[in-house]
Amino acid sequence: MKDFMMIFVGKEYVDLGMSPEELQSRMEKWFAWGAKMEQAGILKGGEALTPQIRRITGKDRTVTDLTSAEVKEIVGGFYLIKAKDFDAVQEIAKDFPDYDLGNTVEIREIMIFDQ
């Protein structure tokens, strides 16, 4: 088994003017997905991120403060899971609730450094 990170990229709920009813139904899908991974014993962790961004860039270390509304895409959160390979994670990522919003899942393997 290897460690993988699923990174969620796209639009934020706060910028989409969702109704309480829609928010609840999306959240329930997230619950179900999280519970499924937990039951399978593969979930190692995960976080949701706030829509505030402080970006530091270039040799002058230029600082810009942004919110999700000002950028095309934003990393909204991530899950850390255990799986056999990329294909297995791809299968798990099928349940990601926000594909219909145009949002994306990026699967990355956690690098192991040999001595």
């Binding site: 969702m18 309480p20 928010l23 959240m27 997230w30 619950f31 999280g34 995960g46 949701a48």
Partner: peptide, 16 residues
Amino acid sequence: VQDTFIKASLSWRKEQ
């Protein structure tokens, strides 16, 4: 109030 539901929908993902 809308803000409350957005916060709930994000933070409850991790733990209800």
